[in-house]
Design a protein around this nucleic acid. Structure first.
Lengths: 143, 143
DNA sequence: GTAGGTGCAAAGATTTTGCAGTGCT
DNA sequence: AGCACTGCAAAATCTTTGCACCTAC
């Protein structure tokens, strides 16, 4: 279904090629920074500008078609809400990003809600650590 | 005990007033961005420069005296490892940052380790969502 | 036809880097 | 006395904004 058009219209926004392109790029990429998304969209529409990516992502997020999480240094990472809700596991050694089903964290969220009255936004959650292969490598950390 | 001096020396770094000041600021603040830390240190040493804060934080992190987490938009947030290990709860509405004991997440971490072989770095973990007071405030109208 | 959307370039904000003087060891 | 450390300013990044033209509705 292409309910995304309706999603935009119902919030008073227009449907444009750029918005379609950005949404498609985010969906295909799974997750990506504004610059990664730019590169992807430029494959189809070379004239698109980075500022359009930023503005479009903001709109898409407001209408609920994408969300973002802070996975790393500067750039936020965007992903479509179309996907199953998942948590990001970020490896501090190799940088790999793994996705695990949100239900893994449900008991934890329940505890946060019960003990602190805090309602967790699972899609935003970034878990940093060491992935399986880096642990098995017995890696030596480098700066 | 001022084992922090030994910590620096054993890694080949020197002990300076600036490093003492930054470490103290981070400890007193609990957690803070580079700029917040700058303001705090400037209270004692007005001549200190932001670039010194960045460089010092990097050194302090390398020797294991502080760590950082990505709590919000751009700036990483630093905190001393001296504190009890804790998780940060970031409210997306009011921006408040709450700290909860790391053990709250232990079952969750165990699941991640068991199912995905992932070793979680708890101090880095940022949990985004809505805090208790914001939930109570906005119960009728949600935007 | 109108108002929102886009591309482009410049402004802002944030973080990093080169250099020469300072001070720890 | 040697060399790491610091302050300062400029450079590099990343993100936002102003403006004129274009396009969806």
């Amino acid at each position: 279904m292409s309910g995304w058009e309706e999603q935009l219209r119902s919030h008073g926004y227009r449907v444009t090629d750029q918005r379609a392109g950005v949404l498609q790029a985010v969906t295909e990429l799974g997750h990506g920074t504004p610059e990664e998304i730019l590169v992807r969209v430029q494959a189809d529409a070379p004239r698109i500008n980075l500022s359009t990516i930023y503005r479009t992502l903001e709109v898409l997020e407001e209408v609920g078609l994408v969300t973002h999480a802070h996975l790393g240094h500067g750039s936020p990472t965007y992903h479509s809400v179309d996907d199953d809700l998942h948590i990001h596991l970020v490896c501090r050694s190799c940088g790999a990003i793994d996705s695990v089903p949100a239900r893994t964290a449900e008991p934890f969220c329940a505890a946060l809600e019960h003990d602190h009255g805090f309602s967790t936004d699972l899609g935003h959650m970034a878990v940093h650590g060491l992935c399986r292969s880096c642990r098995e490598d017995g890696q030596s950390s480098t700066g």
